[in-house]
């Protein structure tokens, strides 16, 4: 019966917990987005439902559930129904290989990051099919724009992380986490002082890669300044113009789920994951709790950054977006790989 406990029971419990925590975080983010937007625009934001307005997402979801689920007559029904789910799914699935703690990982695959890229490359179907199945011009144009954008920036996203794996010599995400923060190696010497440990984070060892990854991450999640798929003044609501009720909610929440998944990857690859210079061992046998807290704090700080950018920077024009992706980010990404190789030989890291 060990098979049922070890291979079916525990993974199922872990999946259940992580998926639900992720969905709770999505709700929290929706609230945070509105409050931070209000802060930036010198307003109050939603502050009436519950303490600090924290129950606002609950009210929103109840509203969305109770709204009429309208399926227009001109749509391609089966695709119209599955498209929103196809957007939400990849973001949640990619959390399966993220290490939230020393032993808190659903699937410790030796190809961790490739799994994430494979799954998130499927996210594009939700938007493409949704735009196409709506049978409306705004939706189709929004969907096609978004597809072109996502496949362009996916390449940049993939190139930007190669440097990290050249340093860690492993695609397993747990190895990448453990490699960071234990002191930097320079010219064959191991510096384990506090500066050495801080500089060991990949954000300092791979600054160009980090910036590229963040830019491409914004584009992949369709966030401002890259939210051209739903540019109101040109395309109504873009690919989700025809969707209502929970179908719209899935698109809406899917964006936040994608933010969480990109944020979790960034924390793991560049910000030391669940470690924090020895603090992660605090609490003895309950250290897993400390590790989750460390991860959550880093993740939330990053989400704040995502929201901050959205309410600060205006949207790109479409030709600018494509030029940036192919003519600026792609060559820089390739150069970063070469540079990493050369520096690795010089500094013997």
């Amino acid at each position: 019966m060990d098979f049922w406990i070890d291979d079916i029971g525990w993974p199922f419990i872990k999946i259940f917990i992580i998926a639900n925590v992720a969905l709770m975080m999505v709700a929290l983010l929706v609230w945070a987005e509105r409050r931070v937007a209000a802060l930036i625009q010198d307003r109050l934001g939603p502050n009436r439902v519950g303490p600090l307005g924290l129950l606002q997402p609950v009210a929103d979801v109840i509203k969305l559930f109770l709204k009429e689920d309208l399926t227009p007559g001109h749509v391609n029904r089966p695709f119209f129904i599955i498209a929103p789910a196809l957007t939400m799914m990849p973001a949640i699935i990619s959390l399966a290989v993220i290490p939230f703690g020393a032993s808190l990982i659903i699937a410790d695959l030796d190809i961790g990051i490739l799994f994430i890229f494979a799954i998130s490359s499927l996210a594009v179907y939700g938007i493409t099919i949704g735009g196409w199945a709506s049978n409306s011009k705004y939706s189709l144009l929004g969907g096609i724009r978004s597809t072109a954008q996502m496949i362009s920036y996916e390449i940049c996203l993939g190139l930007s992380v190669i440097g990290v794996f050249m340093l860690s010599k492993s695609l397993r995400l747990q190895d990448v986490v453990l490699m960071q923060g234990d002191g930097i190696w320079l010219f064959g010497e191991h510096y384990t002082g506090i500066m050495g440990k801080i500089l060991d984070w990949n954000i300092f060892k791979q600054p160009i890669g980090f910036i590229l990854f963040m830019i491409a991450g914004f584009a992949e999640t369709n966030r401002t300044p890259f939210d051209l798929a739903e540019a109101e003044q040109e395309l109504a609501a873009g690919f989700h113009t025809e969707f209502s009720s929970m179908k719209f909610a899935l698109y809406f929440l899917g964006e936040y789920a994608a933010m969480i998944s990109i944020g979790a990857i960034t924390v793991t690859l560049y910000l030391g994951g669940w470690t924090f210079f020895g603090l992660e061992n605090l609490g003895g046998s309950f250290s897993w709790l400390t590790q989750i807290l460390i991860f959550a704090v880093k993740l939330l700080a990053l989400q704040f950054f995502f929201i901050w950018v959205r309410w600060t920077i205006p949207r790109f024009r479409y030709d600018q977006l494509m030029r940036l992706g192919w003519q600026v980010l792609l060559p820089i990404g390739l150069a970063n790989i070469l540079l990493t190789g050369v520096l690795k030989l010089i500094f013997k890291v």
């Binding site: 190809i111 494979a118 490359s121 499927l122 179907y125 196409w132 189709l140 597809t147 072109a148 496949i151």
Partner: peptide, 23 residues
């Protein structure tokens, strides 16, 4: 590895382009 490349290259990249062209 082969499994992931199968999804990444065929399902995630090539078929998206197919879909694009068909649309």
């Amino acid at each position: 590895f082969i499994a992931v490349i199968q999804v990444l290259v065929y399902a995630g990249a090539i078929m998206v382009l197919f879909l694009f062209v068909i649309m």
